[in-house]
Write a protein that binds this DNA or RNA. Structure first.
Length: 592
RNA sequence: GGGGACGUAGUGUAGUUGGUUAACAUGCGGCCCUGUCAAGGCCGAGAUCGCGAGUUCGAGUCUCGUCGUCCCCGCCA
């Protein structure tokens, strides 16, 4: 038997017991006579004491202690749990009041010196960590994240079982639908020249499951998108995917609210219900983002009206081309240095701003590059409307509405960090609803679905699409919603289209021809004709959720074997070349 | 596709305006040490400064290229 207890579970209550533990040597403290070492397993670590006086009959053990009690070797220890000598307790360890008096030791395996210090692995360069990920994952902090991730999934299953959800697995080898993200493709051996695609989401399958009558479905679904990576984006990620029949938005909000409250307890986070709701338009105009961070105010203001009739060319041109003049008032920001303002300006330009206007309100009035061009009356009014106080800073972007909102949204986040407005341990959820159904792609000169093409429009009677103007079409809202946590989109969903004629009309709007729609989604359109129930659903990004809930800032910390920014696995060296034989079977030739 | 940061013993870092023996910590090896918990003390080994060109009497340091890791823009319905 390898163990009677886990190392990390031993406490004062076990004092006097003969126990057996197995684990890895964490640190060794050799005093020449008495030797201490910590043994570590998934539950924690405990101090083992080797007392030479106990082994005067057994010289062999001295050699074992010397040679094999080394970092990361794997030992089985028989011993007695003892209360530590008064004054030698370690309050930093959960097992710090006791220690194990070694009676017998068995070396289960040796270890080369680890590439890096396990307990400090998070300070090591990431490529080294990823190459030796199995060592990195011995770090208790990382293990804790994965244990919590596991508890989260278990709590989800428990909760959804009580709500009558059925767990169904959908295919990984599926059909390419080149809408949205780039697909990962898998060549077919049976039919050379044909390809499967890995799912970007189980979207269509879960809708089919609703048509099959499963009523409520969920899945912990692996999804794949062949797009460039970010700190919060991996090519392969996990979604908690759900779909409901006979459901309205409010019922979905309610279940997700309760699901989040239930599962966030695992992270020691209390979620206040109901979760707040904000319309897309309000989120954009106040927060400059469709994923507003509600942990701080710093709201965007529209000051266009003040400058109607101004001779200041920047504002004048914006207003003439139906743009907006938007402002952020930054409390105490007048103390920003020239360099601070340059950084903000650079950031604004990175996101497409033509420039960033600023004004510091000081003893001498407004100090700003625009005072030369704007009337004092306008400035006074702006100060009044924005309630600018002495020592405040005003940042102004004058541009097309959406762009100005987006840029100030970015600056808002930057300023919140700079001004330390974000208090640790605060978790603010918000639902965003009433999304526009479509957005216009300037490059391709066509409409794209903002959510996806199966999202129900919110208008019951959206009339003859052919007679609608571009602006009217852009004003159609969809029955889509996102759940946002601390300024990060955790997930999104929608009430789907369950009528064939509506789905066809939407395809038409998206400039997807009848033939194309039949080719790509014919199976769905046909299924909609066989009694598809009204349905809707949502998917939550599990990796992002765990990332936020555990306070890590990289998605790679919550994925056991993540990919690098070039989508490679440094541990296995994937992707890699394959044999000519494999390629021949697939009918694939590599072009140089 | 684009912008930026970084790359020096196993690991984490320092290395001045280019100057001859590349430093420190930790880890590793040896010895000493009976209450430590990042144990301590002494000794020792360990680096073609990511790779390749170039400038120079001389390059870790400057230039160009290249590879890799990270952050961001585009992209991610």
């Amino acid at each position: 038997m390898f163990r009677t207890h886990y190392c990390g579970d031993l406490r004062e209550e076990h004092i006097g017991q003969n126990i057996t533990i197995s684990g890895w040597v964490n640190t060794r403290r050799d005093h020449g006579g008495v030797v201490f070492f910590d043994l570590r397993d998934i539950r924690g670590r405990v101090q083992v004491v080797f007392r030479p006086e106990d082994f005067s009959e057994n010289q062999n053990i001295f050699e074992i202690i010397k040679q094999n009690v080394k970092p990361e070797s794997v030992l089985k220890i028989d011993g007695i749990v003892s209360k530590r000598i008064s004054g030698t307790e370690n309050s930093n360890m959960l097992t710090g009041k006791i220690e194990i008096i070694l009676k017998n030791i068995e070396v289960l395996n040796t270890s080369k010196p680890p590439i890096f210090d396990i307990e400090k692995s998070r300070d090591v360069a990431e490529d080294v960590r990823l190459k030796y990920r199995y060592l990195d994952l011995r770090n208790p902090e990382l293990q804790d994240i994965f244990v919590k991730r596991s508890s989260f999934i278990q709590a989800v299953s428990e909760f959804l079982k009580n709500e009558n959800f059925v767990y169904v697995e959908t295919p990984i080898l599926t059909k390419s639908t080149p809408e949205g993200a780039r697909d990962y493709l898998v060549p077919s051996r049976i039919e050379n020249g044909s390809f499967f695609a890995l799912p970007q989401s189980p979207q269509l399958f879960k809708q089919l499951l609703m048509i099959s009558g499963f009523d409520r479905y969920y899945q912990i679904a692996k999804c794949f998108r062949d797009e460039d990576l970010r700190a919060d984006r991996q090519p392969e990620f996990t979604q908690l995917d759900m779909e409901f029949s006979f459901v309205t938005e409010d019922e979905i909000y309610d279940i997700i609210d309760r699901l989040l409250k239930h599962t966030f307890k695992i992270f020691g986070i209390d979620v206040n219900l109901p979760i707040a709701k904000i319309s897309y338009d309000e989120a954009m105009s106040k927060y400059g983002s469709d994923a507003p961070d509600m942990r701080y105010e710093l709201l965007i203001n529209d000051i266009s009206d003040i400058f109607v009739g101004t001779e200041f060319q920047v504002f004048k041109q914006t207003l003439e081309s139906n743009g907006k003049i938007l402002a952020l008032k930054v409390d105490g920001g007048a103390s920003f240095s020239r360099k601070d303002l340059d950084v903000l300006t650079e950031k604004a330009k990175e996101f497409g701003a033509k420039g960033l206007l600023w004004g510091k309100y000081t003893e001498n009035g407004l100090e700003s590059p625009m005072t030369k061009f704007v009337s004092q009356q306008n400035i006074d009014e702006m100060i009044k409307v924005l309630e600018v106080k002495k020592n405040d800073l005003v940042l102004i972007i004058s541009d097309q509405k959406e762009k100005a909102q987006q840029i100030l949204g970015v600056l808002r986040k930057l300023l919140a960090v700079k001004l330390d407005l974000i208090k640790p341990g605060v978790y603010k959820f918000v639902w965003v609803y009433d999304f526009p159904m479509l957005e216009y792609d300037e490059d391709e000169k066509r409409f794209n679905a903002k959510h996806h093409p199966f999202t129900s429009p919110s208008l019951e009677n959206y009339g003859d699409l052919k007679n609608m103007t571009k602006n009217e079409i852009l004003n159609i809202k969809s029955r889509a919603y996102d759940i946002v946590l601390n300024g990060t989109e955790l997930g999104g969903g929608s009430i789907r289209i369950h009528k064939k004629d509506v789905q066809e009309k939407v395809f038409e709007l998206l400039n997807i021809s009848h033939d194309e729609a039949t080719e790509k989604f014919g199976f769905l359109l046909e299924a909609l004709e066989f009694g598809a129930p009204p349905h809707g659903g949502i998917a939550l990004g599990v990796d992002r959720l765990i990332m936020l809930a555990t306070g890590t800032d990289s998605i790679r910390d919550v994925i056991a074997f993540p990919k690098t920014q070039k989508a490679a696995c440094l541990l296995t060296n994937a992707p890699s070349t394959v044999s000519i034989k494999q390629l021949r079977e697939l009918g694939i030739k590599i072009v140089e």
